[in-house]
Nucleic acid binder design. Structure first.
Lengths: 146, 146
DNA sequence: TATTGTTATACTCTATAACTATA
DNA sequence: TATAGTTATAGAGTATAACAATA
C-alpha cells in the first residue's frame, strides 16, 4: 500500500487549504484597507470584539485559540492606534474590559467589505444552502468545549 | 447598530478557529513524533506527497497555497533528513520529481496516527454522516480553480 | 494557590524580490 | 520571454517561560 492516509487525516489538510485559500485571496484586499498596519491577527481581534461586544483579553485568547501573551502584545498596538479602549474592572483589579472605539468600529466595517468579497470568491462553488450547511457544521464543532 | 458583521464575514472567522482547534490539539501530539524536527509545514508536504504520489515542487506549492520558495527551503531539509528523494527530470532539466523515501513513508504513517486522534477529538460533535457532508463541501470548494 | 495580564526570547512561517538555469 | 527552482532577507505569527499584581 502506497498511501497511508485515511479520511480523518485528509480532513486536516482540507481545513488548512481552505484557510490558505481565504488568506491568499484576502491578503491583497486587506492590505489596502489596513490603514493602521494592525495585520491579520489585529483584524481578527477587532472582529471578535465586534461579534461579542466588550470582553477581556483572556476571552479573546480563548475564542481565537491564541496565547494570551500574543493578544496582550497586539492589544497594546490596537490601543496605541486608538482602535480599542480599555477599562480596568472595578470589581477585579487584575482584569480589564476591552471595547471597540468608534474608529475601531469603522475599521471593522472596512475589513468586513473585503471579507465579504473574499467569501464570495472562495465559496463561489457552493450554493446558498450549501454555505448555510457548511457554516452550521462549523458552528456545531466550535460550540463544543475543548 | 453595534455589530457590522454579516454572515459571509463570520465564515472566515469560523475557518480560522477551526484551523486553530486542529493546530492546538495536534501540536503536542505531533511534537512527540516529529523525530526529524521538520515542523508542521514539513509534515504537510509529506502528506501531499503521500496523497498525490511523486510530483514537482511547484505542484506542492500550488496544492498548499504556499510560495515555491518556502517549499524549496523545507524540501532541502526533508532531503537532508532522508525523508524525500529527488530525481531530475530527463526531459526538462529545470524540473525535478520528488518522492517519499521509505523513511518518509514511515514518518507519514506516524503523523497520520496523531492526525486521526486529533480529528476524532475536534470533530467529536459531528456524526459520521455530518463529517462526510463537511468533507464533501470542502472538497467542492477546493476543487475549483483559483 | 490560582488567575489576569505583561514582558522577553527563540523559533517557525510567510512575503517579496533577486537570481540561475533551462526552455 | 516564460518557467522551475534557489537563495536571501525582513517581517509577522507562535510557543514558552518567567514575572508582577491581584484574588
Amino acid at each position: 500500500m502506497d498511501c497511508v492516509l485515511d479520511h480523518d487525516a485528509t480532513l486536516a489538510l482540507q481545513i488548512d487549504r481552505l484557510m490558505r485559500r481565504f488568506h491568499t485571496d484576502l491578503h491583497p484586499r486587506a492590505q489596502k484597507i489596513d490603514a493602521e498596519k494592525i495585520g491579520p491577527i489585529g483584524g481578527m481581534i477587532l472582529f471578535v470584539m465586534s461579534e461579542q461586544g466588550p470582553l477581556t483579553a483572556q476571552a479573546i485568547a480563548d475564542t481565537l485559540s491564541r496565547d494570551k501573551s500574543q493578544i496582550s502584545r497586539v492589544m497594546s498596538l490596537l490601543m496605541r492606534k486608538g482602535l480599542v479602549d480599555r477599562t480596568t474592572d472595578r470589581e477585579d483589579a487584575r482584569s480589564a474590559t476591552l471595547r471597540l472605539s468608534e474608529k475601531g468600529k469603522m475599521q471593522v466595517a472596512a475589513f468586513n467589505g473585503a471579507l465579504v468579497e473574499t467569501a464570495k470568491s472562495v465559496l463561489g462553488p457552493l450554493s446558498a444552502s450549501e454555505v448555510q450547511t457548511f457554516s452550521g457544521l462549523m458552528a456545531k464543532i466550535l460550540s463544543s468545549d475543548r
